Computed example of a mutant assay.
Amino acid sequence: MLVLILLIVSAYLLGSVSGSLTLGRLRGVDIRTQGSGNAGGTNAFRTQGAKFALGVVVIDIGKGALAAWLALRFAPTDGPLPVRAVAWLAVTAAAVGHVWPLWHGFRGGKGVGTLLGGVAVLWPIALLPLFLVWVCVLVGSGYVGLASIIAAACLLPLAVWLRAEASTQIFAAAAALLVLFTHRVNLQRLRAGTESRFERVRFWRRRA
Rank of each mutant, 00 (worst) to 15 (best):
T33I: 00
G35I: 12
S36K: 06
G37M: 11
N38M: 09
A39G: 02
G40N: 10
G40H: 11
N43S: 08
A44N: 03
A44F: 07
A44W: 06
F45C: 01
T47L: 01
T47R: 01
T47G: 00
Q48Y: 05
Q48L: 14
A50D: 05
K51M: 07
L54H: 04
L54Q: 04
L54E: 04
G55C: 08
V56G: 07
V57H: 12
V57I: 15
V58Q: 07
V58F: 14
V58E: 05
I59M: 15
D60V: 11
I61D: 08
I61M: 15
G62M: 11
G62W: 12
L66D: 07
A67H: 02
A67R: 01
A67Q: 01
A68M: 06
A68L: 05
W69M: 13
A71D: 07
R73P: 00
A75R: 05
A75G: 10
P76Q: 11
D78K: 07
G79S: 09
G79Q: 07
P80E: 08
P80L: 13
P80F: 11
P82D: 10
P82N: 07
P82V: 05
V83Q: 08
V83Y: 02
V83P: 02
A87K: 04
L89W: 14
L89C: 15
A90V: 03
V91H: 03
T92K: 00
T92R: 00
T92V: 03
A94S: 09
A95L: 08
H98G: 12
H98R: 11
H98M: 10
W100S: 06
L102W: 15
L102G: 01
L102P: 01
W103P: 03
W103D: 06
H104F: 15
H104S: 14
G105R: 10
